[in-house]
Write a protein that binds this DNA or RNA. Structure first.
Lengths: 236, 236
DNA sequence: GTCTATAGTCGGATAGAC
DNA sequence: GTCTATCCGACTATAGAC
């Protein structure tokens, strides 16, 4: 077991969730965020949660069971967070009550919040890392992630882009382009080390996240504002 | 050892590089592309290369040594490939002999080639996967990757963007925005599973890569063409 | 230089006390 | 339900034959 995790175990999370099941899930999010499914050990997980190692097979049937529980827990949390906003946007898009310029603003809001959360450290960074890893080596957890969460986010982004481009949301080219757009923010996670080295940062802090947000917003405006304004003038 | 690798071992690569060292490096690229450093086992690697398991510690000092050799080998190969183009562009940028519209075309050329290679399957896909993993859990290999390869690519992209935006290539905001641009193509690797599911593809083939390329080019044009043309008219 | 056999380590799950 | 102790399998690296 490495020193880092020992140090972490000595300095447990502030809110000691008394339920060992809950504690294991919280520890799992941290450990599985740092390492991957194979890389994380039950001993690390147990130490971080402050519970016995045998508790993992007992409560979750095994390490993989804990991993799935961690992902499911996170999916539930994140879904709870974004569900109202997603539903609201979906309805506006479906009823065609959204002007292209408004759609662009919505897009920026979504991207801005994501960046703040994913780069801001803590659980959301772990969350983002788990997602990126699942893309390369999908496990059973990917189904949960995709069907219960990503799909909705991705469909919403595609929907907003479709409004701006005045095309159908199901248009394959719109979907691909929406994916590329998402990439502009995802790359600050998935290409984390590169950009940190490139600009000489140790990690992301409040200031640097703001700079990243600005860069992404600039790109979005540059790309979509003219077309949105033109579409608005053209009447919808 | 899983069935997949057994099947692969039964169906070895077409060109049997007779040198066991070389064979291990080639096998390593495949196996380390599928799994990560911890996940890959020396047994898998040896089976895939058709050599004895003990050959890994013998030639490379251990599994990690092989991993580093694989990355170094790939860095050398990729550097050889892109070096002339990179140097040529650098010189043009430095001497300010590149019009903004030309810079945009260069950018599209670079992105187009990358997409074709990274998504095209084979060694380049493994390569891309290793890179993404190194971003999340950097090992010693990241230094090789960054210092000998990524840095130059990233600087070149930043340089081209700077020409288009008529700003300095060392401008932090330009660097961040260049990174976002790179994200638009990287996301088709780093968000591989998501986009495949979203559009219902099994994997990338020639046709789908062309569609992806088109989507990325459309975005680049939409974002940068107007500003490049305006800059060109404004005189440089 | 290449092989077989094995030593030594580690990790996950289990048995069984409490 | 929670702990300790342990088993068993898998892995990497090494020893030593050829």
């Amino acid at each position: 077991m490495n020193e880092l995790v020992i140090a972490m175990a000595a300095n447990p999370p502030k809110k000691p969730a008394l339920d060992p099941k809950q504690r294991l899930i919280e520890a799992g999010l941290e450990i599985f965020g740092m390492f991957n499914l194979e890389g994380a050990t039950t001993r690390q997980l147990a130490a971080r949660a402050g519970v016995n190692q045998a508790a993992i097979p007992y409560y979750f049937g095994g390490k993989e069971g804990l991993y799935l529980a961690v992902v499911q827990h996170m999916v539930d949390e994140r879904t709870k967070e974004i569900r109202p906003a997603i539903l609201r946007i979906r309805e506006l898009v479906q009823k065609q009550q959204l002007a292209p310029t408004q759609a662009l603003e919505q897009l920026k809001t979504i991207f801005g919040e994501f960046l703040g959360k994913m780069l801001g450290g803590g659980v959301n960074t772990s969350w983002a890392r788990i997602i990126v890893r699942e893309q390369m080596q999908p496990t059973k957890a990917f189904d949960l992630l995709y069907e219960q969460w990503m799909r909705y986010v991705h469909e919403t982004v595609s929907g907003l882009l479709a409004v701006i481009l005045q095309k159908k949301a199901t248009d394959q080219q719109v979907i691909l382009r929406a994916h590329a757009l998402v990439g502009q923010m995802l790359v600050f996670i998935a290409g984390r080390q590169t950009i940190l080295r490139r600009v000489g940062w140790d990690g992301y802090d409040e200031h640097s996240v703001q700079l990243v947000r600005q860069a992404v917003f600039d790109q979005l405006d540059l790309m979509l504002k003219p077309i949105a304004q033109r579409a608005a003038k053209g009447g919808r």
